[in-house]
């Protein structure tokens, strides 16, 4: 009845032009287009154009010259070193990241907040400062470093130092990715596994790890990208010895400073390609396992 009384006057009122139906969460078309265009323009200016120019510069004198510059012994040594450092630092950090996230989310203990802050420390400390810390601690003039050098295991200006610096910088990636997920998942499934007779080890492999595998993969990919690209900390600890302790980012800088433009940009292009491979891998996995991702409650 209420409807009748309201709609009656409306029906007799002269028909007025109705505004085009617009949902309450929908903006007018011109606004949507403007915002989209602004974002696309910014992306192009800040991301696409610089990335593309790296490849353009690298291929300026032709692909053959670019490839030749990469097969130079020093360049080749830098590529191998970067891959080696990532191959050591990333698995170790995956391991430590899982352990840290486990300790933070599955138990209650004093000092938890402290550990969380410590994990974030590498994000807030400048990489150069991190590198300096390692030099101070392990340098030849320090007690520990002197002893290590005396025993034939130099850390600073050698591969172990580069690995240490890279691990310090990339430590938060895996743990940061896992902590929120593991907090949300709680520990009921783990407890269920235990009541069903599983050992702690079996519980970890059959319940915990499958539940975090996607977050773990994301963390590892991010960690890997950063490990290959790290410059500041590595620059301080490596001593930039060409052919020995120069990683790809260091090599790029040195080549660039020497006006060896094609060589510098060829190496930069290769480093970019490595990062793009990582990104593609991630997208492929997301696409291939979309169902499982949805089922595990992660987008």
């Amino acid at each position: 009845m209420a409807d009748m009384t309201v709609s009656a006057p409306l029906a007799t009122a002269p028909a007025r032009p109705r505004a085009r139906a617009v949902g309450c969460t929908e903006e007018p078309r011109w606004l949507r287009w403007t915002v989209t265009l602004v974002v696309l323009a910014l992306l192009a200016l800040l991301v696409v154009v610089p990335l593309a120019s790296v490849f353009v510069e690298a291929l300026r004198d032709g692909a053959a010259v670019a490839v030749a510059s990469l097969s130079d012994p020093d360049a080749w040594s830098a590529i191998r070193l970067t891959l080696l450092v990532a191959a050591v630092a990333v698995p170790l950090n995956a391991l430590f990241g899982v352990a840290a996230a486990w300790a933070l989310t599955k138990f209650h203990w004093r000092g938890k907040a402290w550990l969380l802050t410590l994990i974030d420390l590498p994000f807030s400390v400048s990489p150069v400062v991190a590198g300096l810390c390692i030099v101070l601690l392990f340098g030849t003039n320090s007690l520990l470093g002197g002893w290590l050098v005396g025993n034939g295991l130099p850390i600073v200006f050698a591969v172990p130092g580069i690995v240490l610096a890279t691990m310090f910088i990339t430590f938060p990636f895996v743990a940061r990715e896992l902590v929120p997920l593991m907090t949300e998942q709680g520990k009921a499934e783990e407890e269920a596994a235990l009541t069903l007779g599983a050992s702690g080890w079996r519980m970890f492999w059959t319940v915990t790890l499958p539940n975090i595998r996607w977050a773990l993969l994301y963390g590892v990919l991010l960690c890997n990208a950063r490990a290959m690209g790290e410059f500041g900390a590595v620059a301080v600890v490596s001593g930039k010895i060409r052919g020995e302790t120069a990683t790809m980012p260091i090599m790029i800088e040195m080549l660039y400073n020497e006006y060896m433009s094609v060589a510098a940009f060829s190496m930069a292009a290769l480093l970019t390609l490595l990062a793009l491979v990582t990104l593609t891998l991630k997208s492929l996995l997301e696409w291939r396992y979309a169902d499982q991702l949805a089922a595990s409650g992660r987008h």
Partner: peptide, 19 residues
């Protein structure tokens, strides 16, 4: 230990293994 108790435990939100 919990594994040796052989207690069938049903959790509040069931805690089924989601994967």
């Amino acid at each position: 230990r919990v594994q040796e108790r052989r207690a069938g435990f049903v959790f509040q939100h069931y805690a089924l293994f989601r994967h």
